[in-house]
Simulated assay, not measured.
Amino acid sequence: MSRFAGKVAIITGELKKNNFVLSCIRSSGSSNGIGRAAAVLFAREGAKVTITGRNTERLEETRQQILAAGVPEGNVNSIVADVTTDAGQDQILKSTLEKFGKLDILVNNAGAAIPDSQGKTGVSQGLDTYDATLNLNMRSVIALTQKAVPHLTETKGEIVNISSIASGIRATPEFSYYSIAKAALDQYTRNTAIALIEHGIRVNSISPGLVATGFGSAMGMPEQVADKFYSVMATKKECVPAGVMGQPNDIAEAIAFLADRKTSSYIIGHQLVVDGGSSLIMGLHCQDFAALLK
Rank of each mutant, 00 (worst) to 15 (best):
L292T: 10
G246S: 12
G269M: 02
A234G: 05
V232W: 06
G209D: 12
M233I: 03
D250H: 14
G216P: 01
E223D: 11
M219E: 00
S231A: 13
I268P: 00
V274G: 02
V240G: 07
K294V: 12
L210T: 06
L280Y: 05
A254T: 02
L210E: 05
A218R: 01
T213F: 05
M233T: 02
S217A: 14
D275N: 15
Q224W: 11
A256R: 01
S217W: 06
M245T: 12
G283Q: 06
E238K: 07
A254W: 01
K294H: 11
T213K: 07
P222S: 10
D227C: 11
P208C: 05
P208V: 09
I268V: 03
G276T: 07
V225W: 08
K294E: 15
A259Y: 01
A218F: 01
G283S: 11
G246Y: 05
A212V: 09
E223G: 02
V211A: 09
V225L: 13
D250W: 10
V240Y: 03
L210H: 09
I251T: 02
A226K: 02
D288R: 15
Q287S: 12
T263R: 12
A291W: 06
M233K: 10
Q271L: 13
C286D: 03
D275W: 11
F215D: 04
G209T: 05
T235V: 06
S231E: 14
A252P: 01
H285G: 08
L272I: 03
T235L: 15
S217I: 10
K236E: 05
Y266T: 08
H285V: 04
I255F: 01
V211M: 09
F229A: 07
G276S: 10
